[in-house]
Structures are given as structure tokens and as C-alpha cells.
Write a protein that binds this DNA or RNA. Structure first.
Length: 463
RNA sequence: GGUCGGAUGGCCGAGAGGCGAGGCUCAGGACUGCAAAUCCUGCUACACGGGUUCAAAUCCCGUUCCGACCUCCA
């Protein structure tokens, strides 16, 4: 596989350009993960899915990928939640970190190479602050906070293309200690009752921005290839990461990639929508592989307008593809070997043009289904291989053990029982006793089992 | 106020100057004992007004509407 044709969009220059790794054959990615203060909704997980597809593609074209996704396990909201739920802050963080892990697993998002927690990297954060204070970029005014002095930066706000003076200043900016209202906190002084860690400037806890710079540096070094996150992180979070990291003399991220939102009624999802769009709620209605297919089907930089109708349509589309692969496997009497078609590679290399890839997959399925009708095994195998290869990059391979049914022993028993019923039905059809054969089919349909008569015999699927 | 994005057929969703991506729904057909599945055919769209061009959904100017960020955000 030739890895040199990949083109990616870089938020920093707002253009698609050829991807050149900093170190040949290797890619380092840092993705801003969750602040674990509530169960994940599909917007959170779309980000995970989008970057999982990127990671799988980079791996497929031959890169050795180091993928880091952090967990922010200390922040204001977690502390508020702890008070509200009357449990310790670390219990809140653990509870929701697990909820995210479960959701990622249910959607076949591969575990990151490293998944650092903020609270495990206080030492690295203090070292970074010491360096920033030593070189005059940051200051500790004596109240326990530590701020970065943004006026001193020559290239602040270049990612979001804003001017410092155009920013609306916060109403609650406290200039008692800040030199400028837009200076941001690297470190926050401890309030009574809050968790804290000792520093040379007093006890406190990390600011949100500082942790990502420190962790990205710890696992990927002073410069790495791709930094990802949601569109809403561009400002302030990613600008501030750049500010801290460049002030420390690090080159930091080479390319910035941002995924768009899942929207409802044209608006960004928010908590006011309640629980209905939480991942685990939606998984009561569709399978994980179908939710992933839906979330991954739009281009990662396009807004995805969520509706249950669209989700259902997407599931129907997926079942057609899945049905083809199942039939192909039965006819070929062997596992389908995944392969990557030239069209799929071209689409993915074009800034992960998944919608184009999906159109190509549909065409392959159509060709493959026609090959089944003609019983052309070579053509079936070719289509099926390319479909499976594409699906595996998209994380939606129906034969992936992650998505496999749970209980094999029970499946075997079911298989035997239905085979028995189908034998009866085939016999009835042979003697043209259609009343009897239809009665058997109706009974199975009522149980949620669909019967299809094919030239090579009857097959069944569970709805 | 500053910055950024969007408006495409009944619905979802690509494309970014030149044969109307693809999916879903619906209608008709083939196949089938009837179905199911599959295949074939049909449903000819790009917010509005100008302009550039042989040619505009795509480029330019203007307008309307929708949304995001501006120190909690995927």
C-alpha cells in the first residue's frame, strides 16, 4: 500500500494538503477526549468514531500509529456533580469514564494506544508551568493561580483567525490578579473542600488547557503529527494549548483536525435534550454496528442532523450490505478475505471522503448481488472482499468478533431447530402443499425469523 | 462587534465550472406457487436576485434565512 497519497484538511490553514508525517512511517495523534462528568451522547461518540476511522485508515496504509486520547478527570463540572450525587469526585470521574469506555466499545472504537488521565500527570504540568514562568511567559500573582500572559504571544489566535482585541471580554474577568482579562489560567488555586495538589505556588488543581499540552508532550514529544477534537474546541482550548506549548518552545501539532457536530433541529446538541440521545439509550433501538454506520456515514467536517428516521434509513441501508456479505460467505463456503479497492483508497485519501466511499460500496454490493444471481463465484468473492475491506476500515465489519452474537451454543441449537422446520417446509413445498409450507413460514415469521427461498435452498435470518 | 460554517429532490446525504454520487421511501417490472431477498425501470434537485463563461449547484457581487465560537463544551 502506498501511503504517500493521503490528503487531509488542516484547520490551521483551512485547506486540504498532502499529509507528510514528521517521521517516516509513523504518525502520532492526540485527540481531546471526554471530560467525564456525564454519560456520553452521540455527539461525543461521533468524534470518537471519526478519529477511529482516521486511525484505521492510517494503519491500513502502512503507518505505525500512536493514538493518544486523554480523559479529563478533574474539572469544575465533576466537582459540582460530586456534590449533587453525594459521592466523591473521583467516583464521579470513574463512573463516567467507564460509561465512555463502554460506549466506545459498543461502537467498536479501538482503545487508544495510551489513554492518560489528567490527574496522573500533575508532575508534568508543574514542570511545564515552571518552564513557562522561568522564561517569562506565565506568572503566578500570589493567589495560588498561575496565568499565561497572552499579550506577550506573537502568534496567539492564529488557529481561529481572531484578533485579541476583537474578543468579547468575559463579564466576570477579575483583574485583581490577571494582567489582562484574556490571560487564562494554567492552574487554579484550591478552594476549601476541593481536591488539590501541592505546587511551588500553592495548592490547587490543573486548568483544562494545561493538561492536554502536558499529556500530549509526555506521550508524543515536542512535535507530533495530528491533533484532533470537536469544532468547538478550536477556541479557546486548542488556541490555549498552542499558546502554552509554543511558549515552552515546543513545535506541538503539525496538523489540526476538527470534527463537526451532531445537530438536532439544526442546532448543536445540548443537555437540555435530556437523555434520549445518550449512546446507551439509542443502543436499545439499534445495534452498535448500525449506530456506528450512521455516525460515520456523513463527512466528518459536515454537520450530521440527527433523527431516528434517518438512523433507521441508515440501518436499512447497512442491512442490505450485511445481507450481501452473509450470502456471499455461505455461497463461497469460506471466510471473506478483506481487500482494499482502488476506489475506496482514493476516497479515503481524499480527506476521508466516506460518503464517496459509501457510494462505491453500494455499487460493489449491486455487482456482487448480481454475481450471486449468476452464481459467478469469482465475481462474488471479489466484490465481497472489497466490501468487507471497506467496512473493516469504517469499523463496521459484520464479521468482526466485537459485533458477533453472544451465545454460540444457543445459536447452534437454534440453527438445528430451524433446519428441522425448514426440512418440513421444503417437503411440503415439494408436494405442493402450500398451505402447510406457508403455515411453517408464518410461524417462523411470528418468532422474528425471516425465510428466503434461494436456488440453493431456503435460508433464514433473525430480524 | 469579531471569527467560522451552512441552505441540494418526499427524506438523508455527496459534489465545488462541463455526461443529474449514493442511500432511504414510493410506483412499475423481472424472478418466485405466494412471499422474502435480489436485479431492472421511473420520481431530474441545488435559498433568492444579478453577473462572469460556450457552459454555473459549483466562480464573482448583493440579499434572505439558519447555526457555531468569543474563556464549561465532541
Amino acid at each position: 500500500m502506498i501511503a504517500s497519497d493521503l490528503n487531509l484538511y488542516n484547520t490551521a490553514d483551512r485547506a486540504v494538503s498532502k499529509f507528510v508525517p514528521l517521521s517516516a512511517g509513523k504518525v502520532g495523534i492526540y485527540l481531546c477526549g471526554a471530560t467525564v462528568q456525564a454519560p456520553p451522547h452521540i455527539g461525543h461518540i461521533r468524534s470518537g468514531v471519526n478519529f477511529d476511522i482516521l486511525r484505521r485508515w492510517l494503519t491500513a496504509i502502512g503507518y505505525d500509529v500512536t493514538f493518544v486520547r486523554n480523559v479529563t478527570d478533574i474539572d469544575d463540572k465533576i466537582l459540582h456533580k460530586a456534590v449533587h450525587e453525594e459521592i466523591p469526585w473521583w467516583a464521579v470521574a470513574m463512573k463516567y469514564e467507564r460509561a465512555f469506555s463502554d460506549a466506545y466499545a459498543a461502537l467498536n472504537v479501538l482503545p487508544p494506544t495510551y489513554e492518560p488521565r489528567a490527574t496522573g500527570h500533575i508532575t508534568q504540568m508543574i514542570q511545564l508551568m515552571e518552564a513557562l514562568i522561568a522564561n517569562g511567559s506565565a506568572y503566578a500573582p500570589g493567589n495560588g493561580d498561575v496565568y499565561l500572559e497572552v499579550r506577550k504571544l506573537k502568534s496567539y489566535l492564529t488557529l481561529s483567525n481572531q484578533k485579541l482585541d476583537d474578543l468579547q471580554s468575559a463579564d466576570d474577568a477579575d483583574l485583581t490578579y490577571k494582567k489582562d482579562p484574556r490571560d487564562f489560567a494554567l492552574w487554579k488555586a484550591a478552594k476549601p473542600g476541593d481536591p488539590s495538589w501541592p505546587t511551588p505556588w500553592g495548592d490547587g488543581r490543573p486548568g483544562w488547557h494545561l493538561e492536554c499540552s502536558a499529556m500530549a508532550h509526555a506521550y508524543l514529544g515536542e512535535a507530533f503529527d495530528i491533533h484532533g477534537g470537536g469544532l468547538d474546541l478550536i477556541f479557546p482550548h486548542h488556541e490555549n494549548e498552542i499558546a502554552q506549548s509554543e511558549s515552552a518552545g515546543w513545535k506541538f501539532a503539525n496538523i489540526w483536525m476538527h470534527n463537526a457536530w451532531v445537530t438536532t433541529s439544526g442546532e448543536k446538541m445540548s443537555k437540555s435534550l435530556g437523555n434520549s440521545l445518550q449512546v446507551m439509550e439509542i443502543l436499545k433501538k439499534v445495534r452498535g454496528i448500525e449506530l456506528r454506520w450512521y455516525l460515520g456515514s456523513a463527512h466528518y467536517r459536515s454537520m450530521l442532523e440527527f433523527s431516528f428516521e434517518a438512523l433507521e434509513e441508515s440501518s436499512v441501508n447497512f442491512r442490505r450490505i450485511e445481507g450481501f456479505l452473509q450470502r456471499a460467505k455461505e455461497l463461497l463456503k469460506r471466510e471473506i478475505e478483506p481487500s482494499i479497492s482502488a476506489q475506496f483508497a482514493a476516497a479515503m485519501n481524499s480527506d476521508l471522503a466516506v460518503p464517496q466511499a459509501l457510494a462505491d460500496i453500494s455499487e460493489l454490493v449491486r455487482i456482487g448481488n448480481s454475481a450471486i444471481t449468476e452464481n459467478n463465484l469469482d465475481a462474488i468473492a471479489k466484490s465481497a472482499s472489497e466490501v468487507r475491506g471497506a467496512l473493516s476500515i469504517l469499523g463496521c465489519d459484520p464479521f468482526d468478533p466485537v459485533f458477533a452474537g453472544s451465545n454460540n451454543a444457543k445459536t447452534e441449537i437454534l440453527d438445528g431447530l430451524i433446519a428441522l422446520a425448514l426440512e418440513q417446509r421444503t417437503a411440503a413445498r415439494a408436494r405442493k402443499d402450500f398451505a402447510a409450507s406457508d403455515a411453517i413460514r408464518d410461524s417462523l415469521t411470528a418468532l422474528g425469523i425471516t425465510i428466503e427461498d434461494t436456488p440453493t435452498g431456503s435460508r433464514w435470518t433473525v430480524n
